[in-house]
Design a protein around this nucleic acid. Structure first.
Ligand SMILES: Nc1nc2c(ncn2[C@H]2C[C@H](O)[C@@H](COP(=O)(O)OP(=O)(O)OP(=O)(O)O)O2)c(=O)[nH]1
Ligand SMILES: [Mn+2]
Ligand SMILES: [Mn+2]
Length: 417
DNA sequence: GATCGGCGCCAC
DNA sequence: AAACGTGGCGCCGATC
């Protein structure tokens, strides 16, 4: 099986997922939107009061004028980047000047709430069908082989903040069903361990270690930030970039990068070898032979060449992760289908708890390394077993592949099993 | 009214 | 001058 054949077998499954859709609690989202809407109005008027006049808060250009001209906040002094048109008003930049004016904290809060309302709370209810189900379209056309999801994108539903995460409560199972969510553990780190053969990292995974957690504890940050560190370093983050995301001096960031590659020495070697091979071939390859050509490697412009090198490292790993989950989707659908066929051929009443069929288990979402199923409550145990076994064993690497399974009535309140 | 680049931000 | 990678989408301001 090569990457092309994988995608061909996947297509009918993606079509089925599109047709099935996911059930949305529309009333919940509408209520939530009203509440957030009131908070937004309040913040707006407080901000206009604080700066002395109204303006369009959604316009970065107008906001930059207010902050950096009227309020005379010195962007250069605070290390705020100049964009093409004006100085940046990104959350990262505003964070640096938060203490210089009382309105800035409120602007950040406004941005957070407006984002949730305009991107999720208001658009999603408008897109449901008569059965309150939402039908995203999955595409297979990204440069690494990952899927993408659009109209609406259901691969970027908030999870980081408590308030954002509430939105996941709106993704619910039908009556008599539960959601089963299965997410690969540290997936791209495992693939990096496999490709590089780094003994330290391989042993860590064989011992069941959680490298994201270890990084989090060492740095005193949350686990999501630790992912940014671990993947950032693996994929070529600069000391400057790392210093920005951790809010530490570049020297300290460089020390972290050095330590990372001292801890995992063969990772550094693998990176160099992969870049060299990409330069001589002109392309890189995933585990199942998907190729990505990287013309940037030949560019006379250093910035582009460096970008090409990072692409050369990232693509085989991210692309292989995509292939693994695609194979799992194919395998799971094959198993459910063959059990269903077996059952109908021997004409058993479909009541035994041992029996599965396409009405008992529906694959409804794919979020890069996570699958979400809607499963008849009485079949959760059997389905969970098949899902775990398929996802963990459909591909064999030199490290174990582990899946984290959770069950619940909605996508927010799911408990590990 | 549609389209586009820029900015910004959500997720993995 | 840049400064982990992969996406989709909302809003603004310019343009047609
Ligand atoms: N380059 C890069 N890749 C990322 C980033 N965040 C996530 N990914 C990729 C690599 C991850 O292995 C993969 C799946 O994301 P997850 O959020 O599930 O994290 P991961 O599986 O590593 O850890 P987990 O044990 O599931 O919490 O997506 C990031 O910030 N940068
Ligand atoms: Mn994961
Ligand atoms: Mn995940």
């Amino acid at each position: 099986m090569n990457s092309y054949q994988i995608d061909e077998k996947l297509k009918p499954i993606l079509n089925q997922m599109h047709q099935t859709g996911v059930k949305l609690n529309v009333d919940f989202l509408n209520n939530f939107s009203q509440k957030i809407g009131l908070k937004i109005l309040k913040l707006e008027s407080e901000i206009y009061n604080a700066v002395g006049h109204k303006f369009n808060l959604n316009s970065p250009s107008q906001l930059a004028k207010v902050l950096y001209e009227e309020l005379k906040i010195k962007p250069g002094q605070s290390g705020i980047k100049r964009k093409k048109t004006h100085h940046s008003t990104s959350a990262e930049s505003l964070g640096k000047i938060e203490k210089l004016h009382p309105s800035i904290k409120q602007i950040l809060k406004y941005r957070e709430l407006a984002k949730l309302k305009n991107t999720y709370l208001d658009p999603l209810p408008k897109l449901v069908d008569q059965n309150s189900r939402l039908h995203t379209t999955y595409m297979v056309d990204t440069s690494t082989g990952r899927l993408s999801s659009k109209n609406p994108n259901l691969q970027n539903i908030p999870i980081r903040t408590d308030i954002g995460k509430e939105i996941r409560k709106a993704f619910v199972a039908e009556n008599g069903y539960k959601l089963l969510a299965a997410d690969y553990s540290q997936i791209e780190l495992r693939i990096a361990a496999h490709f590089s053969g780094d003994k330290t990292m391989i042993d860590a995974f064989k011992e069941g270690k959680d490298i994201h957690r270890t990084t989090a504890e060492e740095l005193g940050v949350d686990r999501r930030t630790a992912k940014t560190v671990n993947f950032g370093i693996l994929y070529g983050v600069s000391s400057y970039g790392l210093s920005e995301s951790l809010r530490i001096p570049p020297e300290d960031a460089q020390a972290l990068i050095d330590k990372y590659f001292l801890t995992f020495p063969k990772l550094a070697k693998y990176i160099q070898e992969t870049i060299q091979k990409a330069q001589s071939n002109g392309y890189v390859e995933t585990l199942y032979g998907r190729r990505r050509y990287i013309p940037e490697l030949q560019s006379p412009i250093e910035r582009l060449r460096k970008f090409g090198e990072r692409v050369a490292i990232n693509t085989p790993i991210q692309g292989t992760a995509a292939e693994i989950i695609k194979l799992a989707m194919i395998e799971i659908s094959r198993k459910v289908f063959s059990i269903e066929k077996l059952v109908s051929s021997i004409d058993i009443q479909n009541t035994s708890h041992k029996i599965l069929d396409t009405d008992s288990v529906k694959l409804i979402l794919q979020i890069h390394d996570e699958l979400v199923f809607e499963v008849k409550e009485e079949k959760i145990k059997e389905v969970a077993e098949i899902v775990r076994d398929s996802m963990e064993n459909v591909v064999k690497l030199s490290v174990p592949i582990i899946v984290d399974l959770r069950v619940g009535k909605n996508w927010r309140e799911i408990e590990s099993i």
